[in-house]
Design a binder for these strands. Structure first.
Lengths: 156, 156
DNA sequence: AACGATTTTTTCGAATTTCGTAAAAAACTG
DNA sequence: CAGTTTTTTACGAAATTCGAAAAAATCGTT
């Protein structure tokens, strides 16, 4: 996989703001031809650098309750627990971490009942979870995939 | 804002998988006309139900270090701290929470140095942060905005 | 059930975008 | 610097999107 250059990052930055901006417009904006933008985007997709998706507003979908849950797993079951958790549609993020919790997940629910049911019935049925530390989201300030920056990648 | 119906959710589910699928194809897939898909998507966008974005792979962008940081703020400064943090491009998530930490953020860095600099120099300069509890991501299992489900919204 | 009003869906030609591909240009290599 | 590879451009054909009007469906009222 070739290293991303300035043009690639500019394309990503534009698509970050509007994932459906036409190649022709991006081309015009960057002073390149449509074909160039197209071939670059095709390559970026092929290299798995990004995907076209949508960002729904959970509130508008009726998912009024969001939570971050820190999990402590029994030694040796971290991986299987993480994979099990990843299958749930209400779980949007699962990661293994160093620090207080072995796993940290983020999940969305319609209401508190659904969250309680998830913790008490779903989580308890997964073998290997020792403890769950639930933090309820009170207000969301920022939530995005917008981490494309055009600054220099540090020399390793 | 009208309530989302089954067709809206189906459209969102399709776009979740491929944010660039043409209206014509969605229409064909759902047995509706292109115009219907177009007007529904236009309305959903106008109502702020979702946005077209891209999901970059942080690793492919050279962002090899991700962290979740739980913050304790001084009484009264939670909001200003959150807003300040939201301005950082490396910070992709900021939320106020009940539980152990007042704020929880998620951020991406090129390397450990960048993370250390962020914690020691950026965070320390923000007025109102009492403590920061850093968890380093060791492995990512799931990360998506795919929380559109087509099950029943519970009766409140 | 019938009515008008409103909203949603369909239709269709025009404008725009995307696609396939070949040629040109540029960049890289030894 | 000639040869090779990669990238960009160009352009006609195919597909998609767009604008707007007609048709259909939905809704509230009687």
């Amino acid at each position: 996989m070739r290293k991303l250059d300035h043009v690639d990052k500019q394309i990503l930055q534009i698509l970050q703001e509007d994932g459906r901006r036409p190649y022709t417009e991006i081309a015009h904006q960057l002073g390149l031809s449509e074909g160039t933008i197209r071939s670059r985007i095709t390559r970026l997709l092929q290299d798995g650098v990004f995907q076209f998706v949508i960002h729904p507003d959970p509130e508008k979908l009726g998912l009024h309750v969001q939570a971050i849950i820190g999990l402590t797993t029994k030694l040796g079951s971290q991986n299987s627990v993480a994979e099990e958790l990843s299958k749930f549609p209400e779980v949007r993020f699962v990661g293994a971490f160093s620090g207080k919790h072995d796993l940290i997940i983020q999940a969305c629910f319609h209401n508190n009942d659904e969250l309680i049911t998830f913790v008490n019935e779903r989580l308890s049925q997964i073998e290997g979870i020792a403890a769950a530390d639930v933090s309820l989201e009170l207000k969301q300030y920022k939530d995005s995939f917008s981490f494309v920056r055009d600054d220099e990648v540090p020399i390793q």
